[in-house]
Design a protein around this nucleic acid. Sequence first.
DNA 1: ACAAAAGTGTTGTTACTACACCCATGG
DNA 2: CCATGGGTGTAGTAACAACACTTTTGT
Lengths: 226, 226
Amino acid sequence: MSSPKNGHPSSQDIKVAVDAAIFTVRDGELRVLVVQMKKAPFARRWALPGGLIGDRETSESAVRRVLKAETGVADVYVEQLGTFDNPERDPFGRVVSVAYVALMSSADVALKTSSKYADVRWAALDGLKALAYDHSGILKTAAARVRERLGYSNVAWSLLPKTFTLAGLQEVYEAILGEKMDKRNFRKKIMAARLVVSAGKVLVGGAHRPAELFKFKTRNVGLTSR
Amino acid sequence: MSSPKNGHPSSQDIKVAVDAAIFTVRDGELRVLVVQMKKAPFARRWALPGGLIGDRETSESAVRRVLKAETGVADVYVEQLGTFDNPERDPFGRVVSVAYVALMSSADVALKTSSKYADVRWAALDGLKALAYDHSGILKTAAARVRERLGYSNVAWSLLPKTFTLAGLQEVYEAILGEKMDKRNFRKKIMAARLVVSAGKVLVGGAHRPAELFKFKTRNVGLTSR
DNA sequence: ACAAAAGTGTTGTTACTACACCCATGG
DNA sequence: CCATGGGTGTAGTAACAACACTTTTGT
């Protein structure tokens, strides 16, 4: 059960936080938003953004608050990843963290370094040194979750503008999965999944044959069966 | 991040609990362990077992502690399901609950009604009225997770004795998935998954042709690719 | 000999992989 | 007319679903 019978023993002294692994695709690769810590013992170390949740706030709204604060973007895909609660994970005291995964288009985001952090950036996953707290572990789990979701859903909508070409969509898939795909097979699979429909327009301005533009049927996250 | 820079604001007043959806297969159907509450406002209502986590304890060890207390069984499959944190979920105060799924063989369990609860039982999933707190929602998510896991892993090990017949294994699958399967296809699939190997013995005492006994190659949970 | 559960193969369908050429446009 | 990326089909293979009879034992 969630609580003892009558009132709660006030003995427990645990804080509840959220951490967010916010992904985007940039320069053809999957990147994650990391922030640079100011204070010891993590000064100059990179970490995932996060913060304590409010007394009357869900963890999901706390994540959206953090997201908004770090990126200014609101309409993104957010999914709970899991709760990390090693008692030693935070040197300042007992904090359990509910971790989330988010996906967003980096196009419309101008990262603004808040006073809270020394720096903010979109970092490639490899070449990222040990993060503060247990964030390296969270990040690893988060990246696996994104790859897993991609196949069976339309989560890619939050990484793309409203209309996009199939080649653009394929680039996103390739960036996230880290492998090249066959163009014909990719298009067949996407069409078979029926998540996407023609926008009835073509992309102009390319120096070559114009590409047909598509849009997602829905921006709600739909898991395709299974 | 998990914490503000220096020490944590003592303002936050949230408790952290665990809840466990403990499943077994009994009489050919999937059942869940529920406990009956004693005190208002949930007196006589059923709920999932759970409790607050200790200051120096992980949520997983808290769940194993609860499991041991309610069933006496220790060696079971346990998996984190997710964290439920609606601020209104607990009328006694703000409690976020880390929910877990567990699977166990009900054969070797004698449920003992602890003084903590009015009653304890293995309940079929349908015909279960609204549970206390938000436990109906947790249970629904938990059942979906078990069905999802079953296909891609050997989690069934914790539902079966050390050696078992393929017919017995199939009954477990049918109970969990709620559908009949074809015997030949089932056996092919199980053999192809290579999670199971002959124990070199046969089941005696049946009034008919003896069945070959099998065992899992490993009791660690192995996800079969994908 | 019969009742009861154990065990076993084949066929069709569907999903995925590999692979190469013509098309439409801008310059 | 050429350079560039857009767009298309087919054949082989692997995974899954449907389906019925023979075998082994106890009584």
